[in-house]
Design a protein around this nucleic acid. Structure first.
Length: 268
DNA sequence: CTGCCCCTGTAA
DNA sequence: TTACAGGGGCAG
C-alpha cells in the first residue's frame, strides 16, 4: 500500500509506540530483506539498541538508534510495520524485533520487495543527499516548484515521481494532483506556466495532507479493514470510466514503465 | 529515456 | 493462464 501518506502514518504510529524502547533481539527470516548484509550479522547489530525516534524521509521509515545510527526500512509495494502483543504467525512476516516491553515490532511484506538497512551518520548523509524536497515542508513553495520544473524537460508526471526532485510522491498522488490541477501528465515540466505550477503545488499539498490524515485514521482506528475507503480516486485506476468532472472517459497510458491515468478533456 | 529485475497476490 | 500491481535500482 505504501506511498507517502501510508509511510507517514506508519511513522507516526511507531513514534508513539516504540520510541524509547530497546530492541532486545532481532530475527530476520529472509536474506533478501537485509541484502547484502547477512541476516545474522544484521540481527546481531540491532540487539540491545535503543530506538530514539521514528521519522519519515521520502518513503523511508527511519528508526533512529543510539550511536547516531538508524534502521532504514523501505516498504516498497507491500511492506508494513506493526507492533504486536502476540506472536504474528502469518507467512509474510520477514523480520521481527523483540522489544523490552515484551511486544514485537514486525516487518511484514508479501512481495519481498521491501528492504532494511542499518545506516551510520555517513549513510544518513548520503541518503539525505540523494533525496529531493519534502512536499509537506515550508520550503515547497509555488516558486520553488516552478523553478525546479523550469529546469527539466521530462514529462511532468515523471518529474513529480522522481525522488531526487520531490521526495515521497508516488504513482497515485502524482496522477491525482495533476488531475486536480488540470494539467496533462505528458507535458514537459518546463512548459508549465507560473500559475499552473502554483496550482499544481497547492493540489499536491492539499491532496497529500488529506491522504495522510485518512491513512493515519485507518491505521489507528478499529481494525484496518477500511484502508481503501475514505479516499475516492478521481482518475487513478478508473480508465474507461466517466471523469468525475466532465463525464468524459478517463484514459490510461504508460509513462516511465508505470501506468498513468488522466482525463484528456479536463487535462488537455 | 526504455526495459528488466526483484517477488507474490489478485483480478481479468 | 496471463497481466498487472501504489517502488526503485540497474543496464543499455
Amino acid at each position: 500500500m505504501p506511498e507517502l501518506p501510508e509511510v507517514e502514518a506508519v511513522c507516526r504510529r511507531l513514534q508513539k509506540e516504540v520510541a524509547g524502547r530497546t530492541i532486545l533481539r532481532a530475527s530476520i527470516n529472509r536474506p533478501q530483506v537485509t541484502k547484502p548484509q547477512s541476516p545474522r550479522s544484521f540481527a546481531r547489530k540491532l540487539a540491545k539498541r535503543k530506538i530514539q525516534r521514528v521519522e519519515r524521509r521520502a518513503k523511508n521509515v527511519l528508526l533512529h538508534l543510539d550511536h547516531g545510527e538508524a534502521l532504514k526500512v523501505h516498504l516498497r509495494m507491500t511492506g508494513d510495520l506493526l507492533v504486536t502483543e502476540e506472536k504474528d504467525r502469518s507467512v509474510s512476516v520477514r523480520a521481527r524485533l523483540l522489544l523490552d516491553d515484551g511486544r514485537e515490532l514486525i516487518f511484514r511484506d508479501s512481495r519481498l520487495l521491501g528492504h532494511m538497512q542499518l545506516l551510520d551518520a555517513a549513510g544518513l548523509a548520503r541518503l539525505e543527499g540523494a533525496l529531493g524536497i519534502e512536499p509537506l515542508t515550508a520550503g515547497f513553495t509555488p516558486a520553488f516548484l516552478w523553478n525546479a520544473l523550469s529546469r527539466s524537460r521530462v514529462p511532468v508526471k515523471l518529474f513529480l515521481m522522481d525522488q531526487t526532485r520531490i521526495a515521497g510522491l508516488g504513482n497515485i498522488w502524482a496522477a491525482e494532483a495533476l488531475f486536480q490541477a488540470r494539467i496533462d501528465p505528458r507535458r514537459p515540466a518546463n512548459t508549465l506556466s507560473k500559475p499552473e505550477a502554483a496550482r499544481l503545488r497547492n493540489r499536491i499539498v492539499k491532496t497529500l495532507e488529506g491522504a495522510v490524515e485518512s491513512a493515519y485514521r485507518d491505521y489507528t482506528g478499529p481494525g484496518r479493514a477500511r484502508e481503501e475507503e475514505g479516499f475516492r480516486a478521481a482518475v487513478y485506476r478508473r480508465s474507461g470510466l466517466p471523469c468525475v468532472r466532465c463525464r468524459g472517459k478517463v484514459q490510461k497510458i504508460r509513462q516511465g514503465g508505470r501506468t498513468t491515468y488522466f482525463c484528456p478533456h479536463c487535462q488537455g
